[in-house]
Design a protein around this nucleic acid. Structure first.
Lengths: 257, 257
DNA sequence: CCCAATTTGTTCGTATGTATA
DNA sequence: TTATACATACGAACAAATTGG
């Protein structure tokens, strides 16, 4: 069930003005993105239906559909025939398919169980500062997680999060969040993680990681450094994931439909 | 010349017949894919322009555009305003952006220099057989390459290729190919590599790999096992790449526009 | 269970804009 | 400059999926 709709009362959009060099549907797209970003269209909410929305923008339905189509392709929106068009929200399924690329060596995919090992205030280190466009030493939260698959510790995460983005965060609130971490960012701080960049290396397991994952120090492990991005490619989280690739692997598909 | 009609060999397509449950544009898309696959539309060739092509299929231009749009998104076709629509071919640029995910730790991307270390007849091993849907022991070519970036050996590739797919291959022809390996498959054997699946692990460098890449045996390295796919997800090549991730890294973008 | 209203999906046809050769 | 080809935009009609009565 979609959230409450105000009926035909008020559609919070103004007609887009034709500009030279900018297709109309791009202007419509930007208006929709702005509405999502500033909270007028919160995650999970339904968009007005096509005809009234197109009318509000002062464009044809086909033009609106082109704008919506691009936002669907970018996972900001999703739509179903007969139901409507909705603002995407972070769910365990989305996390699994878009952001969690670890699966069993036999190809089995499952949602990991996340154990929070620590959650403290600290400061950005150099790598995180560079990735996040801040300065080393800026106030930040440090979160350490262990991810279990089929009951086995497979991934060790070290997250760094600029403190300015998550005012009001407490360890208790983090530990007691009901859903995924990205869902928590979304619901509590209005941070929409839309995409991410990852860089993968092979390294010997450090002592910390070895202990957390139950492998011998020096064992070759994957180190995945992820920068999570929000609107306009703005970096919002830096994360170093260490993965034991014995029974599990990091998977990737190049060029799916 | 009066209006072209029956007998005009210009456009090799028949009208698509409407079927229940299958959108017209999907039927058009399948017809285009079939033409690419069977060589009626070879790589690099131009499609007929939209209006005549739509007429040949017996659909509206918008319907044709929807079919073409999906094929563009899947990199089977590309199009430019003012020029036309073309069948994609394998180029160094395509290899770099779609299939080669190694770049400098500083973010610099460059095309690797490929050295062929060996190219022999052999037999599929178990991993390759499973990936390729064949049987261990099936006749196959084994190719071993070393890839250099900025003059440094960074990647070691071991390729297995079912012999039945590349009849007429010789070591000399392979070594003297002018372009990328996938371009060679395309031009010489009509094999279109469209996508790939990769599984990444961290392993200690074997003696062979250590020698080829100039690192100490046991050094943690990335092992990327790739299955290259053609039409209908048909596997055509199995490749194990070993990457030294000191000055270089394996990069990935999750969910770009 | 079926029906009817709602909503997106598909298809048509046309006109005009913009990039390319 | 001209002709060509794809890109954008419009509006209309019907199909298919979903929901709720």
């Amino acid at each position: 069930m979609p959230s409450a709709q105000a009926g035909s009362a008020a559609i919070p959009f103004q007609p887009v003005s034709p500009e030279t060099g900018v297709p109309l549907y791009r202007a419509v797209k930007r208006a929709l993105m702005a509405a999502i970003e500033d909270g007028r269209l919160p995650p999970g909410s339904a968009l007005p239906t096509e005809a009234p929305l197109a009318a509000a923008f002062g464009v044809a339905v086909g033009t609106l559909r082109q704008a919506v189509g691009e936002l669907v392709a970018e996972h900001l929106l999703w739509r179903r025939q007969g139901r409507g068009t909705f603002v995407a929200e972070h769910s365990p399924e989305r996390f699994l398919f878009q952001f969690f690329h670890v699966e069993g060596a036999d190809g089995r995919r499952e949602a990991p169980v996340v154990e929070t090992l620590s959650c403290d205030r600290g400061r950005l280190n150099e790598d995180a500062a560079e990735a996040l466009g801040g300065r080393a030493g800026d106030p930040a939260w440090h979160i350490e997680n262990r991810l279990l698959l089929q009951g086995q510790a497979v991934v060790h995460d070290r997250i760094q999060l600029p403190a300015t983005l998550v005012r009001g965060l407490t360890e208790k609130r983090f530990r007691e969040r009901p859903g995924t971490i990205y869902r928590f960012y979304q619901d509590q701080f209005g941070i929409a993680v839309l995409s991410a960049r990852e860089r993968v290396r092979a390294v010997p397991a450090s002592l910390d990681v070895a202990r957390a994952l139950g492998v011998a120090r020096g064992t070759p492990v994957l180190e995945v450094r992820r920068t999570a991005l929000s609107f306009g490619e703005r970096p919002v989280e830096y994360r170093v994931s260490t993965i034991v690739t014995g029974a599990h692997e990091y998977v990737q598909t190049l060029n799916r439909a």
